[in-house]
């Protein structure tokens, strides 16, 4: 006797199936492969230089796989912070409005399932697709490097990489939920895609420019301005993610803010253990998760209150 599957699992299954068979996903897969190949090529050409400069005490050579850049191709973490939003938005921008326009939503909601299963299953399915993709890229890079270079990560490095990949999923989940939010607000999927891209473009290009202008206008001293910029940067999901990953993958970063000479006095110029780095980025992680859930909560509320036929 076959086991009865819960309707929620059926919905998630169908969503994942839809993603995997869609052009959207194939294009994303292409992007992912290019990213992976690009970063591996970068690493292969650079790793010798890094290896030559190894400091015997703090040799986090493996982490360079993700942060190294030859000046032409950006490092892996930058590529992900740039392409991740596209991936999230691509998976999220049409989940609700397409179903509404095609009329499938009323058919599905006429089945004995709670209404929120619909939006929740979209979220869970997209998150699963994202997690599988991100972890496969990460592990592909690691595996390939171990094979070709013969170096392997320490436990500390491995943990850092796994958490980096996990937080990357959160970051992409934020953009996914922004996409879902727009897909509930806008009837046309083209509009919601453009709205998502507009937000992305704003944060990638214009946000730091605008903040620079404001900072220079308000503060006179260079120190105040840079403090202001650092703080403002944390209000941008991209800035938050960049800072988070940089700290996590660069154990020598000891603090997120400016340290005074008094604070630095007597400190040993050593790297932080993993747990301390994690502590340092914890607020960032919370911020990202909060932003993700705020987007989802708004989308959820709109979806639950909206008439099926408006």
């Amino acid at each position: 006797m076959e086991k009865q599957v819960s309707p929620f699992a059926v919905l998630v299954q169908k969503e994942i199936g839809d993603y995997i068979y869609s052009w959207k996903f194939l294009i994303l897969l292409g992007i992912i492969l290019l990213t992976t190949i690009g970063s591996i090529i970068t690493i292969l050409s650079l790793i010798k230089d890094y290896a030559a400069n190894i400091d015997l005490e703090n040799s986090f050579l493996f982490l360079n796989l993700f942060t190294a850049s030859d000046g032409n191709l950006p490092p892996f973490i930058s590529i992900i912070s740039f392409l991740g939003p596209i991936m999230g938005l691509a998976l999220g921008f049409d989940v609700i409005n397409v179903e509404r326009n095609r009329g499938t939503i009323s058919r599905v909601l006429a089945q004995p399932i709670p209404r929120d299963y619909f939006i929740n299953s979209k979220f869970v399915a997209a998150l699963m697709v994202i997690a599988v993709s991100i972890f496969s890229i990460g592990f592909l890079i690691m595996g390939f490097s171990i094979l070709t270079l013969g170096i392997y990560p320490t436990l500390d490095e491995l943990l850092r990489i796994i958490f980096f990949l996990l937080f990357t999923c959160f970051y992409i989940a934020f953009w996914l939920n922004l996409g879902i939010l727009f897909s509930t607000v806008f009837r046309q999927s083209a509009t919601s895609a453009l709205a998502g891209l507009a937000v992305w473009l704003f944060y990638t290009v214009f946000y730091s420019m605008i903040m620079n202008l404001i900072g220079n206008a308000i503060y006179n001293s260079q120190a105040d301005t840079s403090l202001f910029l650092t703080r403002m940067n944390r209000l941008s999901p991209i800035g938050l993610y960049t800072e988070l990953t940089t700290i996590l993958l660069t154990p020598s970063i000891r603090a997120t803010g400016v340290l005074s000479f008094e604070q630095l006095f007597g400190a040993l110029p050593s790297t932080l253990p993993f747990s301390q780095s994690l502590l340092l980025v914890w607020p960032h992680v919370c911020g990202l998760i909060a932003a993700t859930f705020i987007c989802f909560a708004i989308a959820y509320l709109i979806f639950m209150r909206e008439e099926i036929r408006a």
Binding site: D18, G103, I105, S106, R107, A110, Q111, I113
Partner: peptide, 18 residues
């Protein structure tokens, strides 16, 4: 949910996964 279990509904613009 109880109602939807025993009622089948065909909307005017019925949509299927194409």
């Amino acid at each position: 949910l109880q109602v939807k279990r025993i009622v089948g509904y065909l909307p005017d613009q019925v949509g299927f996964y194409e």
